[in-house]
Amino acid sequence: MQNLLTLLQTTIDGILIGGVYAVISIGLSLVFGVMHIVNFAHAEFLMIGMFIAWFAWNYAGIDPMLGAFIALAVTFVLGMLMQRTMIKPILHAPQVSQIFLTVGLLFALENGALLLFGADYRSVSTGYQTQALTLLSTEAGRLFVPLDKLYAFLMALLSGGALWYFLSRTRWGRAMRATAQDPMAARLMGIDTDKMYMIAFGLGVGTTAFGGAVILPYITASPTVGSQFVVLMFTAVVLGGLGSVAGAVVGGIMVGLIQSFSALFLPIQLMNLTLFVIFILVLAFRPEGLTARRRA
């Protein structure tokens, strides 16, 4: 009975956190799907989203769940500017240039935040942080859902659903998918592909920043917080197939489950080791799904 409870609780935890990973990874996958750029700096926008939500909470008393929308708006504009000034010039450059531009951006953003905000850890306190919804209570133990994680999960669902609606049901979303599939044909159909690239990058980093903001109640913000998520979000994206937004959702939830289950068997410091190993193995043994595009 107790084992079963532990198993169920671990599954719940995994899915809750996985839902947030999904939203964080959707942005990365969107950027790759539309522009074919692997953005190594992507996790830094999660950090920026967390900081925006923290400042909104600290100075205006706005709950991180609402601050997430501010984070989304600010990083959307920031992302569009960055796309125009930095990503656009390297869209057709060799991969070496693409890799090192985004790696350079990663260091500039992380350490820029360190210079601006200092190395302090910043957390918020909200009313629901310590509360939990009890699903089941027996003498063997209880099954519960922490409220902060539940809210973050629901917000993740909301933003994921909104993005899905945008991509599949609106004119702009269709134009964006057309750009992703064949930029030349899209241009011939009168789509402003440059604009689509800008919006896609803005939306990609904005979604990730949104995901960063909603986890603020249970993860403290610091300039280096992004580095905890880099491999994690790439694993989610690669598991689901790079460039596929729906795949990123599945990948994100899988990563959440892998993480919470490996925490049962491994010491906490080694929790991410499982992910690293799975990541390398997926890269190594499913390369056809990842590199086939260049050979097609």
Binding site: M86, V96, F100, L101, G104, L105, L115
Partner: peptide, 30 residues
Amino acid sequence: AGLSQFAYGAILVLVILLNPHGLTALFAQL
């Protein structure tokens, strides 16, 4: 703290933006 790494990042970005195709002047790859 972080200034030198910030400089690394900024230098990398600048070097690449100045000449995105220059790092590997390989026409074949292009």
